[in-house]
Amino acid sequence: MKDKQFILGVLVANHAGVLTRISGLFSRRNYNIDSLNVAETENPKLSRMTIIARGDEYIKAQIEKQLAKLHDVKKVEILPLDDTVIREHLLIKIKVTKQTRSEIVESVNIFRGKVVDFNIDSVTVEITGESTKLDAFIKFAAEFGIIEMCRAGAVAVRRGIAPLSDENEFLD
């Protein structure tokens, strides 16, 4: 498959309905979305989205251009994978017994995670990192039994001083 994942950094107006507008654009134009994260920025008028999407070069270019046309989209940029810090966040609740508890806690340290809740028969672990690291931990945890888990969509910023660029500010 020529389909590749790519990451979009998008600055949008911070008001109701913007998320629907963006996700609506993806569904009506038949684009695939792998994950989407959105939250307010230091400027309360703006939210920042990190969208992980998938497609060939054609789809990639179309997504960027169609997003840029939306009135609520202020900036959009495809972030270069090799020059961007990408982080995901995982909360995972794992079954424990007296026998397995220490092994799990040890592994949490190796993964630079944190135990955030601790019980007789379960621990909840928080881990931040790239998706491969999270995948690895999930695989490990599965050996002991995952009770539930929750994974937030990736957030990403480019390395270096430059913020999202203006290059793609198209006309409506």
């Binding site: 270019a61 251009k65 840029a68 046309k69 198209f170």
Partner: peptide, 9 residues
């Protein structure tokens, strides 16, 4: 065209 998204669409 004035709409960049039309090019190559």
């Amino acid at each position: 065209d004035i709409d960049p998204a039309e090019i190559d669409k």
